[in-house]
Amino acid sequence: MTDLVQGFKNAFRRHPAGVAIVAAESADGRFGLTVSSVASVSVDPVALVFSVTKSSGSAGQIIGADSFVVHLLGEGQADVADAFARSGEPRFTPEQHWGTLPTGEPLLLDAPVALRSRALDTLTVGRSQLIVAEVLDVHEGPESGPLMYRDRQYFTLADSAAVTRA
């Protein structure tokens, strides 16, 4: 079994993923976390999915919030992604360029895209929670290439050559 688990981990370390920050406002304050599991699910209803590895702390606050914002990060946002990936790091600082939507959720002003969403359903898989969310609003920010994560490092499309198709 250990070979299967290690092989699975190694496979996904080599598979690049987009980087996002999911953030919410609750009665206890602002909460957020970095995820690399965001994917589109449907256009009717407009929905996305992401996973979290526990249902306590920031993840629990986000799951329990009426709504949250999924920020698809761009080039140059590795520092803010790191801050939300590590416990105890400064979050929602002025230097990170946070604002607030009229509906009350935190908004990362420099994110290329921010998707205000609400949870439709959750599915427990082992120790993880899969959150299916309806997208309520799309907020477009400055144009930027995506921030990607592979083998515990951040990359941009500028770091890679485009594949030419015949």
Rank of each mutant, 00 (worst) to 15 (best):
L4Y: 13
G7S: 13
A11S: 14
A11M: 07
A11E: 03
R13A: 12
R14K: 14
R14T: 11
H15Q: 10
A17F: 13
G18L: 04
V19M: 09
V19K: 04
A23R: 05
A24V: 04
A24S: 14
S26N: 10
A27N: 11
D28P: 10
D28R: 14
G29Q: 09
R30F: 08
F31R: 03
T34F: 00
V38Q: 06
V38L: 14
A39E: 07
A39N: 15
S40A: 14
S40F: 00
V41C: 10
V43T: 12
D44V: 12
D44G: 14
P45Y: 02
P45R: 15
P45K: 14
V46Q: 11
V46K: 07
V49Q: 14
V49T: 14
F50T: 08
S51G: 13
V52D: 09
V52L: 05
T53E: 12
K54T: 15
K54H: 14
S55G: 15
S56H: 10
G57C: 05
A59T: 05
G60T: 07
I62P: 05
I63W: 01
I63M: 12
G64K: 04
G64V: 05
A65G: 09
A65H: 06
A65D: 06
D66W: 04
D66Y: 07
D66R: 14
S67D: 07
F68Q: 03
F68H: 11
V69F: 01
H71A: 01
L72S: 09
L73G: 10
G76M: 09
G76F: 12
G76A: 10
G76H: 12
A78F: 11
V80N: 06
A83R: 13
A83P: 08
F84S: 13
R86G: 04
R86S: 12
S87G: 09
G88Y: 00
E89A: 15
E89M: 13
P90T: 14
P90W: 00
R91S: 06
F92V: 06
P94R: 09
E95K: 12
Q96T: 07
Q96D: 07
H97E: 05
H97D: 08
W98Q: 06
G99T: 01
L101P: 01
P102L: 08
T103Y: 00
E105T: 02
E105M: 06
P106Y: 08
P106S: 08
L108S: 05
L108P: 08
L108M: 08
L108T: 01
L109H: 03
L109R: 06
D110V: 06
D110L: 08
A111R: 00
P112S: 09
P112I: 03
A114R: 04
L115Q: 03
R116V: 02
R116L: 08
R118T: 09
A119D: 02
A119M: 11
L120C: 06
D121A: 15
D121Q: 15
T122R: 13
T122Q: 14
T122Y: 03
